[in-house]
Design a binder for these strands. Structure first.
Lengths: 113, 113
DNA sequence: TATCGAATTGCGAAGTTTCGCAATTGCGAG
DNA sequence: CTCGCAATTGCGAAACTTCGCAATTCGATA
């Protein structure tokens, strides 16, 4: 094995570790979109968006095809949605953990004493 | 919402984006482990491992409890396994994509011409 | 063909992460 | 209490990422 699997996983996660790239992937889940639309939906300079798109292209998470004078991006194959879903689930578990703790604290306050 | 959800997701992925941290999480999936065992299983200096464990602790992906002279780490709540599984699935989809392409190329070579 | 707009690339400055060394903490045994 | 081992923390140097500006590419339209 030339690249151990855990290295590949780490790299995948590292690629996902930027808000603009997350936004792009989320937007592309509703189907292919021209750069123009992404640019309108995300707060970022054109040049910055291009750079993030380049990262996603190099890692083959998205594909680009030229259509006239615009470029259209799409998710390529693999189930990115699943990953994003798992991330959301984990985050909400963490937040509701906090909530539960908060409730416990409140009970203690109001209950005895 | 003080921190947009996509920022939180990006941060979560960024935290996962290091081989040592991935290894730690994978190892902890089989149950709690003392630092000593992690150290034996992963190629990393003690000081480096501590630093990565600190990152995971701060982000509350793992918890640490002291037991005598050793410290035992465990996954905290949320379903990390699910995330790692999704990552593996995505990677294998990508690799088998390549495979399919490779096969196509081979067919073209040997088929006509 | 010349020019316009869309998107990308090259490049340097600023910011962030990672790594190992030295110093420190916490606990148990002698 | 003091020594030794396990783990952690503080800190600085090196490596990597991100950002915006200027320059470039590519296709459409006059």
């Amino acid at each position: 094995m030339s690249v151990p699997l855990y290295e590949a996983k780490a790299e995948l996660f590292r690629l996902l570790g930027h808000p603009v790239r997350i936004r792009v992937l989320e937007l592309l889940q509703d189907g292919p979109k021209p750069v123009r639309d992404l640019l309108a939906a995300i707060e970022v300079e054109p040049t910055g968006l291009s750079q993030h798109l380049a990262v996603l292209r190099r890692s083959e998470l998205v594909t680009a095809r030229r259509d006239g004078s615009t470029v259209v991006y799409a998710l390529s194959g693999g189930d990115v949605a699943e990953l994003l879903r798992a991330a959301r689930a984990l985050l909400s578990a963490k937040l509701s953990g906090r909530h539960a703790l908060l409730n416990e604290l409140l009970e203690e306050e109001t209950g005895q004493r």
